[in-house]
Amino acid sequence: MGFEHFWLSGFDQIHTAFWTYLAVGLQNGAVYAMIAVGYTLVYGVLGLINFAHGEVFMCGGFAGVFLTRDILGDRTGTGWGSVALVLAGIAIGALVSALVAIGVEQAAYRPLRRRHAPKLAFLISAIGASYFLQTLAGKEFGYGVNIFPGQVFEPGQVMFTLFGTTIHTITVVSIIAAIVMLVVADRIVRATRLGRGIRAVSQDAETSSLMGVNIDRTITITFILGGALAGAAGFLYSLQSGMVQNAGTEIGIYAFTAAVLGGIGNLRGAALGGLFIGLFGSFSVPFAFEGNVQWTEIYTFLILVLVLIIRPTGILGERSGRTA
């Protein structure tokens, strides 16, 4: 197979199945975007990457998986019942992940902040928290065992057909849920007093305390916000792909990449970066050599490197890159 032929066949596939690639890309992008916001917000207030954030996502996913299994058992959700289950799954995933995120902050970061520990100590502590959660989940739910949720939607349920492409219900639900939650998060950060506190701490923590901002409380709120989004994403992801104890590593790295790509510290940048990584990953599938989809990962990280060479602070990043 010649190189030219390889490229042409790739474009041919995109040409014939454009809407399918778009739908898959948007669905993945929605999940990445929701997780990426947590990385970027925490980076804003603490100036460090919360490497346990992927595990926060994983915990929310498992919570949603077991909720739907407990309710549905072997049955399949129908009609409004499915809608209610999705909302419940998002809520329980968000709640559990928010609690896990608070736990991570209290156990892994707060004691170090009290002692003015160097950044490296935070990094080690974050990796420790990440391993702890992964191993705990592995012990409870099995190592490398993919656990699927109850059937909220029939497998492969089609919501509608667009230009001859079947669009699955799960895709539509994921995208709508992501948009709503991202818009709400954006409004909270930009237009509420809570958000003003988060932005103030991101820009100058000490001065914000002189303004009366309780830094510890603001950091907790930031973890709750990021955790809730990651937990909701965990549930939406598991509806499609199931959940496995180490899913946080791979998905987390994609989402982290999205946050850096968009400009770390910038909420809209993180959402945009997530969408971009999702779409790019999907549309690069036809260009994978010998059908090996691992190539999409190589392409994605190549793009990351290229973007960072051209714009070291990411797509929407500012000079300092520290604005929430």
């Binding site: 100058d204 000490e206 001065t207 300092s320």
Partner: peptide
């Protein structure tokens, strides 16, 4: 504070 420390963004 010393150095003004206005919120830059």
């Amino acid at each position: 504070p010393e150095g003004r420390r206005v919120f830059p963004q």
